[in-house]
Nucleic acid binder design. Structure first.
Length: 485
RNA sequence: GGCCCGUUAGUGUAACUGGUUAACACGUUGCCCUUUCACGGCAAAGAGUACGGGUUCGAGUCCCGUACGGGUCACCA
């Protein structure tokens, strides 16, 4: 082992949002680090200038902050191995690339994009199994190279893959993986704009930053032999690799935007809790081996191990995520839910200031088992915030009968007698009205619910009455009588 | 197409170094609770472990082949 303290890293390229697959990778890195008392580093792989997105790094960091995946070192958190933005490390990559050129493990290439293009087409025409660079520039003389360089020709630096033994490595999740060298292309290491490619940058940085375990998505598996070669050529000790299975769409293709939301921001906006998202994503490709499904982050840290990570891709199942959201939402204390309710009220043009915390607290109690998302504390029970503006048609025809108006009037009479009523007082009032009229309770309960809520479902009627209060109850029943007569 | 990886109910997973009717959760369906809805409780349907061979007294677990799926083959990460 290079270093007694494990160091891992999450190395996303800044695309403008955090992909849930990236979240899972970040999470596993984080869990692994925390589990073994190691360090977790955030490194930004921004070496593609064509893909530069304004503000992308900030959004990425915000997303990680939101889910509470905290890193020990990163762009905005100084460590001893910075800078943590690859675009700020150009000199370093150049230096190491030249070292490789010096050792003949890399070489200058002056081929034009046009030649590369026609080479590729030619190879395809000949039905070669795989298009590969033909090492044309490997055979340039020292003079030719110097002249080209001096005349300011565009160039790249390529990895010189020589013939030899198979390249194999141990992967924690996949065990031993083997590649033939003839299938490995002379990968560009330094691009003509002076920026490194991923392959060079990630190897150099992982070495310099003393990364011990490379935990990343399976899409990197086939370029790992190039990285192995680089470690060998530099004479550096290799990190341990762990390639995580992919996250998939319901049709088992790689999780993509077309088939649903992929950005953690999307899930946040929809009302998913970070606890639920983390819990869910942790279980996509990993399990502790017991039957536990509900986890908090501390338990995940305690139980996580790379050895128990699965090999096969996992479908991102929205139904299960929703279920987990319900579970985590129910265990959230009121003081965390109330601000969200107020926010939702504001967004739905209610004046949230007229509702006390105590009032909202009562709504939470009555709705807790009936919501999947926090905003449903408003959207699924607007009747707690305003009198029903319309009545559910189906419920009305089913529940408002011939004699309902008469019975409701009788109920009003009973409720009016109440002084500072509590929940059971309403219940008694209804029972009395039922007794006097000789009509069953159901003939009261259902039209009553319709009157006060406009719907046929929701919390118990007496709970609703207790929350909206006596005066509002009477007012709403009167209105319903008027509407349905 | 080449290379690499994978394959246990619809979905996510379990099944220690091969050992009884393949387990749990989500989802689905039904019943109970509740004069509503939901929660909760109970139950059911749903895979014989992609398929085919082998090894073995015995295989989801080991070996081989086939099929299917995915990833990757850039001066993108």
């Amino acid at each position: 082992m290079i270093n007694p303290v494990p160091r891992v890293r999450f190395a996303p390229s800044p695309t403008g949002y955090l992909h849930v697959g990236g979240l899972r990778t970040a999470l596993y890195n984080y869990l692994f680090a925390k589990n073994c008392g190691g360090q977790f580093i955030l490194r930004i792989e921004d070496t593609d200038r064509n893909r530069y997105v304004e503000g992308a790094v900030v959004k990425l960091i915000e997303a990680l902050k939101w889910v509470n995946i905290d890193y020990d070192e990163g762009p905005d958190k100084n460590g001893n191995y910075g800078p943590y933005m690859q675009s700020e490390r150009l000199d370093i990559y150049k230096k190491y690339a030249l070292e490789l050129v010096e050792k003949k493990h890399a070489y200058y290439c002056f081929c034009t994009p046009e030649r590369l293009q026609s080479l590729k087409e030619e190879q395809q025409r000949q039905k070669m199994p795989q298009a590969k660079y033909d090492k044309h520039c490997l055979h340039l003389t020292k003079e030719e190279i110097d002249n080209n360089l001096k005349s300011g020709m565009n160039y790249v630096i390529r990895l010189n893959v020589t013939e030899g033994d198979k390249i194999s490595f141990q992967d924690i999740v996949r065990d031993r993986v083997e590649f033939d060298r003839e299938n490995i292309d002379d990968q560009v290491l330094i691009k003509s704009d002076g920026y490194p490619t991923y392959h060079l940058a990630n190897v150099v940085d992982d070495h310099l930053m003393k990364i011990t375990h490379v935990i990343r998505g399976e899409e990197w598996l086939s370029s790992t032999p190039k990285h192995i070669l680089l470690y060998n050529y530099f004479g550096w000790e290799k990190p341990v690799f762990a390639h995580l299975p992919l996250l998939l769409n319901p049709d088992r293709s790689k999780l993509s935007k077309r088939q649903g939301d992929v950005a953690v921001e999307d899930y946040k906006d929809k009302g998913y809790l970070k606890e639920a998202l983390i819990n869910f994503v942790a279980l996509l490709g990993w399990s502790a081996g017991d039957n536990q499904e509900i986890y908090c982050i501390e338990e995940l840290i305690k139980k996580f191990s790379l050895e128990r990570v699965n090999k096969s891709g996992a479908v991102f199942d929205q139904d299960k995520l929703k279920w987990l959201n319900e579970i985590h939402l129910r265990s959230k204390p009121d003081n965390e839910i109330i601000p969200i309710i107020r926010e939702t009220l504001k967004n739905n043009s209610f004046d949230e200031r007229i509702f006390s915390d105590e009032y909202l607290g009562k709504i939470i109690v009555s709705m807790k088992e009936r919501v999947s998302f926090p905003q449903e504390y408003v959207l699924n029970c607007r009747y707690f915030y305003e009198a029903p503006v319309e009545y559910d048609k189906e419920t009305a025809t089913k529940r408002w009968k011939e004699d309902s108006a008469k019975l409701m009037q009788k109920l009003i009479d009973e409720i009016e007698k109440l002084d500072n009523p509590e929940k059971h007082d309403y219940e008694n009032a209804l029972a009395t009205a039922s007794e006097i009229t000789g009509s069953g309770k159901g003939n009261f309960i259902h039209p009553l619910r319709l009157s006060v809520s406009g719907t046929g479902s929701g919390p118990g009627v007496y709970d609703i009455l207790d929350i909206i209060g006596k005066d509002e109850t009477i007012k709403r029943i009167k209105k319903a009588i008027a509407v349905f007569s």
